[in-house]
Amino acid sequence: MSSDTFLIKVRNLDVIYGEKIVLKSINLNIRQGEIVCFVGPSGAGKSTLLRHILGEEHPRIGSVYVNRQKVKGPNRDMGFIPQSYSLFPNHTALGNVAQGLYLDRCSFGKNLMYDFLKLFKIKTPFIKAIEAEALACLEKVQMQEHAYKFPHQLSGGQQQRVAIASALSMKPSVLLMDEAFSALDPETKMSIRENLLELKRTNNLTIIFVTHDLDGDVPALSTRLIAVTRHYNGGDHTGAKIAFDSPHPLANEDLSLSERIASPQTVAWIARVKHECFDPNYKQDEQAFTLEHPDALPQTHIVLEETII
């Protein structure tokens, strides 16, 4: 299998803030269509890793490639849904979705012109087309009836749905979510997961998400789990590493969400993950499955070869 099939590649990524080493020698391959979740203790560096893939932060050591391009900054190929401030307060739900469409399709000057037209509520065919498209995106997340509400008039769950619609309207190749649903209630979470899974099936979307929800998000959504944990060398924190990289035991099965969560295999996997991830004294027992993902790379400095990149 050629390494070119990997959509996202992280190579020898070190993240150092001042004196503090956050991430050390991170190496990672992710294929298109995977749903990867980053788990690990708070402050270990999951979000930092995600934001480096997103390009919000630039690595001084190591590199991140998406679609064989070195990531220079957040761009239109990536959808991003943060936990908070996922919507623009000055736009309606529809406006939030349409915003991306305008930005993607119009020049700066044209956008100024459309701002001017919108000020006087003049609708050209182009504006109508964009609004129809945005409304269609909202329909996919069942938010069409709240299209003309502002974010402050929406509940947390509704806001995140709009954020999903807004991100997906751009048809990104990767969707990155940073604890996007942590603050929501279980029922809302469930229905949003259904939404995402449906979208993933239809678009073959790659999703990377950071979560704390080992009992919900991980077993329900993911196809692959990556644990980022702190690494100590004689009491000194030497930067977090990928502790293990594990495939979901039912990754390739076509099951409903509740079936995936309830399955004994998933339960056993999660139990193992919890120990591995959060209990350093845990010794590996005779569990039936491996935590080693076939695409996993060694978490030490690897020599870069042109072919890999």
Binding site: L54, P74, R76, G79, F80, L103, N111, D115, M170
Partner: peptide, 19 residues
């Protein structure tokens, strides 16, 4: 987050000021 979001929506540096 909102700045990052703008770039993921395809905004240019110029559009950043406008938004």
């Amino acid at each position: 987050n909102l700045n990052t979001l703008l770039f993921t929506k395809g905004a240019s540096e110029l559009e950043l000021g406008r938004e």
